[in-house]
Amino acid sequence: MRKAAILLIALAIAACGQRTDLEPKAGQSLPPAPYGAETPPDAEELLKLEALAAPERSVELRRRSEERADDPFDLPPE
């Protein structure tokens, strides 16, 4: 009985997700088109991350410790 109730609650929570396209709130509009663009970007284009916003991870692992190079900008406080 208890497992069935937990399963029912889990299914109800999982069903709450919205699967429709994103739209601006009522009375709001999307941002204007950028300079030089003919049409304003849609919601999907606005959600895409630029390469600098989400860079790919470097998977190069260090196998042993390495000596750091001298940093000319690592100065003591004055």
Rank of each mutant, 00 (worst) to 15 (best):
K3D: 13
K3S: 08
A4F: 03
A4Y: 05
I6G: 02
I13E: 01
I13D: 04
I13W: 01
A14D: 14
A14T: 01
A15M: 11
Q18M: 03
Q18E: 06
Q18H: 07
T20P: 02
P24E: 08
P24A: 05
P24R: 13
K25A: 05
K25P: 09
A26Y: 01
G27K: 02
Q28P: 00
Q28E: 13
Q28W: 10
S29R: 04
S29K: 03
S29A: 13
L30D: 06
P31N: 02
P32F: 06
A33E: 00
P34W: 12
Y35A: 09
A37G: 07
A37E: 15
E38D: 12
P40M: 11
P41S: 13
P41N: 13
P41W: 10
D42T: 06
D42V: 05
A43Q: 07
E44W: 03
E44M: 02
E45Y: 04
L47Q: 08
K48V: 14
L49N: 06
L49P: 00
L49E: 06
E50N: 06
A51T: 11
A51S: 13
A53W: 03
P55R: 10
R57V: 03
E60T: 11
E60A: 08
R62Y: 00
R62D: 04
R62P: 00
R63D: 04
R64D: 15
R64M: 12
S65Y: 14
S65R: 15
S65E: 11
E66Y: 08
E66C: 02
E67N: 05
E67C: 09
R68P: 05
A69N: 12
D70N: 10
D71Q: 05
P72V: 04
P72A: 10
D74G: 01
D74H: 08
L75F: 03
P76W: 09
E78C: 13
